[in-house]
């Protein structure tokens, strides 16, 4: 049975007298993956900062400012002794860029928290690396709340919530939300590439079910 980790009701956020978010409700349960999708400036990072104010000890956070403001060389010395995190780095992150950002996030995942809230990491992690990261979180039974502006990210998450015009425009199970193609277009989003390609290939009669990545598409087209 999944336990409720976080409950937010009717949250309003303002910055410099401008309303950024209003009437936000959020329920987060253990072992589940949640994605908040919203364009730049819709208040995703501010939402995290407001959750941080709750000082819930079961939750850890990953936002750019926090990573930048800490001396990670100092922070990571303890981890280097155990070598656990460093081994993960060697195993899964092989492009050698942004190592301290990656190390910082891994450290948070290894901290045995119930929920990790992560602000957009697309700048530091490529798609393969992100997939490995989510797999690691699933294996460790950590719930994830991830903020992104890129719809390509959402397929890795169980639940999707889209922010638009200061509020939640649509929310639900990710695959259900993605069926609302017309509404998504009105909100300014196209479908994720592989889902979109799948639907078109289905129309051409080349496949008879949806594929969510290149491997699935290749098998279905040439089987």
């Amino acid at each position: 049975m999944d336990k409720q980790i976080l409950e937010i009701r009717n949250l309003n956020i303002t910055k410099n007298k401008r309303i950024i978010l209003k009437k936000i409700d959020l329920d987060i349960y253990s072992n589940n993956f949640y994605c908040v999708l919203g364009e730049s400036g819709t208040g995703k990072t501010l939402l995290i900062k407001n959750i941080m104010k709750l000082k819930n000890k079961n939750i850890d956070y990953y936002i750019d400012e926090e990573i930048k403001n800490k001396d990670w060389n100092k922070e990571l010395k303890i981890e280097e002794k155990s070598k656990t995190v460093k081994n993960y780095i060697k195993k899964i992150f092989n492009n050698g860029k942004y190592e301290s950002y990656k190390l910082a996030l891994l450290k948070k995942i290894m901290n045995n928290q119930t929920l990790v809230i992560i602000d957009d990491i697309s700048k530091y992690f490529n798609e393969e690396e992100k997939k490995v990261l989510w797999k690691l979180c699933r294996n460790r039974k950590i719930a994830v709340l991830y903020m992104t502006k890129n719809i390509e990210d959402v397929l890795d998450f169980d639940y999707l919530l889209i922010l638009k015009n200061n509020q939640v425009a649509i929310e639900g199970k990710t695959k259900q939300v993605l069926k609302e193609e017309k509404l998504l277009k009105l909100l300014g989003y196209n479908l994720p590439f592989y889902l979109n390609m799948s639907l078109q290939l289905e129309l051409y009669g080349m496949i008879d079910k949806i594929g969510y990545n290149k491997e699935e598409l290749e098998k279905m087209i040439w089987s």
Partner: peptide
Amino acid sequence: SNVIVIDRFFENLIWGE
């Protein structure tokens, strides 16, 4: 300006924009 240099603008926009 005759030439406009646009630095990492599209990555901050959603598909519609």
